[in-house]
Design a protein around this nucleic acid. Structure first.
Lengths: 217, 217
DNA sequence: ATATATTTTTAGATGTGTCTAAAAATATTT
DNA sequence: AAATATTTTTAGACACATCTAAAAATATAT
């Protein structure tokens, strides 16, 4: 059994380990979790005992396959709950983190998978971060809001924040679909409306619409 | 701050205290929580220190107003989550308890109230137990499935398990609505179909329909 | 009402996760 | 390469929630 605290360490090591293949340092974990280095050492030993982490004294930690899968599951749950909170419970994207930090520790596997289905298998959370599947795999691409993309650059539409009927119909009407390549031509400073170009045509979209469109570069 | 363990004790004392006004005994709590009497004594003292319970040595415990409200909130969360699991995530009524035991401890008040709204303010959980409101109040009546009611008795329709469109339309078509007085005339042993009588007329409903109808007596 | 049984509390111990302070190992500077 | 600084680990302590075993209080039986 993996405890709540262990799950938080796994998640943190997973995130810190993403950039670079080097083992994660004790202090880096302590900073992220806001605890003391000595506490980290204690916990790392427990994770190693449970075959969730590889640990060599004074050399830092990395996750085993088992640890990586456990971490990915926590992240999967966190991001799925974030989608639920924003899409169904009127939370704004900046309110969800704290609540998701609690919800991510609920154990039931059936719950995760049914939630995934209920949300219609989202690929990204409301911050544009990708959601791991059951096996811990996901497209390593963080999608970013189209308003934050430089003029002249293009990306692939990979996620829409608002999945309401009206918005999906709007996309349809304008011939925009997930997977489409979109080039950002110009942002109008006055109202932040956006002119964009797809394979088939150019069009102008409002700031409201743009806020819901996420591209991966 | 109320800890997870404290919340479980509050909930248990609340439930045990419902029947009768006498204080709840240490052993009764120990049995329910499946722990030892000595552990209960320890915890009761903590609850009393936090003004959540009234405690006199060797005389048992009762909840303060503060404790009662805290307990009702936990029960409110538990039952709302049960409704969500059954109505939206394809859980059956006998699978939900364990998961709800975890979900009931998630702290965010916004979460509870938004969930309540999302579920359209249900009054009863999938087992027919009433759901407390924000202030801890609820109709003290447990509603029971119409199939479990004795022939000849009547009750008031207070809860429908299936709130899908088709079922609600079915109710409409048959002139059945929440609040209606319904008398159970007869259960057909062959297919467990039910003949019932309302103010306006008699009708026969199938077992499938009956399974979704809960009356309070 | 005294003896016996039951319930409840106290005292002291254990495991988890954290902490401080000091020691050990590693990294950096000169 | 020796001295200094930084990082990491160890040792010992603490809070929380639990436990066992024994003592104290209450309840029941004769």
């Amino acid at each position: 059994m993996v405890t709540l605290s262990e799950e938080n360490y796994l998640k943190t090591i997973y995130h810190l380990g993403k950039q670079g293949t080097i083992a994660v340092s004790t202090n880096a974990i302590a900073d992220k979790i806001e605890t003391k280095a000595s506490s980290v050492t204690d916990m790392i030993k427990k994770l190693a005992d449970k075959n969730l982490a590889n640990y060599i004294k004074y050399q830092g930690v990395s996750l085993t396959n088992k640890g990586r899968l456990a971490a990915a599951l926590v992240i999967r749950k966190h991001r799925l709950w974030e989608v639920f909170l924003v899409n169904n419970l009127n939370f704004s994207w900046d309110e969800v983190h704290e609540v998701a930090e609690e919800l991510e520790h609920i154990k039931s596997l059936k719950l995760v998978d049914e939630l995934d289905a209920f949300l219609e298998f989202p690929t990204h959370d409301p911050h544009g971060d990708p959601i791991p599947d059951k096996d811990g795999n996901y497209s390593p691409i963080k999608s970013i809001n189209i308003l934050e993309i430089e003029e002249g650059k293009e990306g692939v539409l990979s996620f829409v924040k608002d999945s309401s009927d009206v918005f999906l119909k709007y996309l349809n009407k304008n011939n925009l679909a997930l997977g489409d390549s979109i080039k950002v031509l110009n942002v109008e400073p006055f109202d932040r409306s956006l002119s964009i170009e797809t394979k088939s045509k150019k069009l102008i979209i409002s700031r409201e619409a743009a806020e819901n469109l996420y591209l991966s570069l």
